[in-house]
Design a protein around this nucleic acid. Structure first.
Lengths: 158, 158
DNA sequence: ACGCCGAAGATACAATATATCATTGCCATT
DNA sequence: AATGGCAATGATATATTGTATCTTCGGCGT
C-alpha cells in the first residue's frame, strides 16, 4: 500500500506554500495572478477547464480575467509540475505533491466528473518501456481511465 | 513478438469488408455515407479530426458533409469498435482489426502527428485492475504516450 | 531617466463539439 | 396507395476549448 517514497500530501495553505516553493525553485515568479489561479484550481472539486478557472477568478477578484491568460499560466504550472492536464477531459487538476515527479494515472468518473489519481511507478514504467521499445523519445505518458466511480455506482444501485 | 491470439491485419478493401461485416454483426447499417467516412478514415496517414474527415469526404463526393454528421458516425464507429478516439489528439483512427476487442496503447508523435498502436493485454489489464481496485466500473482505459517517434528523432539528428 | 523584459490584458480567431429541428427514405401495417 | 414509425442524414446555430498577436504595465539594472 505504501509507495516507495513518501508523498507529502498538502492541502489548503500548506499546498499553496509548497507549490510556491517548488515554483520558485523552478525559476518562476509567484505573482498575485498566478496565486489566484492556483487557489482556484486547488479549490475545484473536479478537473477544471481554463474557462472554469477564468470565471472563478473573475468572480473572486472582481477583475475580469481572460481565458488566454489562464492558459498561459496553466502551461507554466504544468511545466513546473504544479498541475496536470487531464487529456480525456480537456481540463486541469492540481498536483497535491509538487515536490516529486511522477507519471500519474487518473481515474475520471463519467457520471460526476470527479477525478482521483493513482501512482504506480511500476505500471507507468512499463508503459514508458513499451514506448521506448518502439523508438519513442521525450515521453509524456497519458494514462487515464474513464469509468463510473464507486460513489456513483452506489447511487445508481440505491 | 507474436501476440497471444492472431490479429488479422487488414488494409484497403479487405479492411473495409471486414469492417462492414463487424459493423453489421453489431446491428448497424453500412450506408454509403458511413462507407465514405470509413474510407476517408482508413486513408488517413495520421489520426484525423471530425473536421478533417468532413472536408475529405466533401472533397471526394462533391456534396458538402457537415461536421455533426461525421461526429455521429464516428460515435457509432467507436461503439462498434471500427475506430478509436485518440484523446490526447482530439482525433480518430481506424481500427485495423475490428473483429477483436482490445484496450489499445497509442504512441503519438508530437512532431509528425503519426500514431501507432501497441497491444499489451498484460499492461492494460494492470491498468484496469488498478481502476477496479479504486471501485471504478464500466472502465474505458485511455493509454497514450506522446513523444517523438524514431523517424523524427533521426531526422533531427541528421 | 532610459531601455529591457517578463507578466498580464485585450481582441480576434481557429478548432473542436453538441443541440435542435427539419427532411428523406425505408419498411410495415392498413 | 395512404399512413405512421423509425433510423439516417441535412441544416443551422451555438457552445466549448485553444491560439495568435499586439499592447500595456511594472519591476529592474544601467
Amino acid at each position: 500500500m505504501a509507495t516507495a517514497h513518501d508523498h507529502r500530501l498538502h492541502e489548503g495553505q500548506s499546498l499553496a506554500d509548497a507549490a510556491q516553493r517548488a515554483f520558485e525553485r523552478a525559476g518562476e515568479q509567484w505573482t498575485p495572478m498566478r496565486a489566484e489561479i492556483f487557489a482556484a484550481l486547488s479549490a475545484a472539486t473536479k478537473p477544471a477547464s481554463a474557462y472554469d478557472l477564468a470565471e472563478a477568478v473573475s468572480g473572486s477578484t472582481g477583475r475580469r480575467v481572460a481565458a488566454n491568460s489562464v492558459y498561459r499560466i496553466l502551461d507554466v504550472f504544468v511545466a513546473a509540475n504544479l498541475a496536470r492536464r487531464v487529456e480525456s477531459a480537456n481540463a486541469y487538476i492540481v498536483n497535491a505533491h509538487p515536490e516529486c515527479q511522477h507519471d500519474c494515472i487518473f481515474l475520471v468518473c463519467d457520471s460526476c466528473g470527479q477525478a482521483s489519481h493513482v501512482d504506480d511507478d511500476a505500471l507507468t514504467g512499463s508503459v514508458r518501456r513499451a514506448a521506448e521499445k518502439a523508438g519513442f523519445t521525450n515521453l509524456r505518458p497519458v494514462i487515464e481511465v474513464r469509468g463510473c466511480c464507486a460513489q456513483c455506482s452506489e447511487g445508481d444501485a440505491a
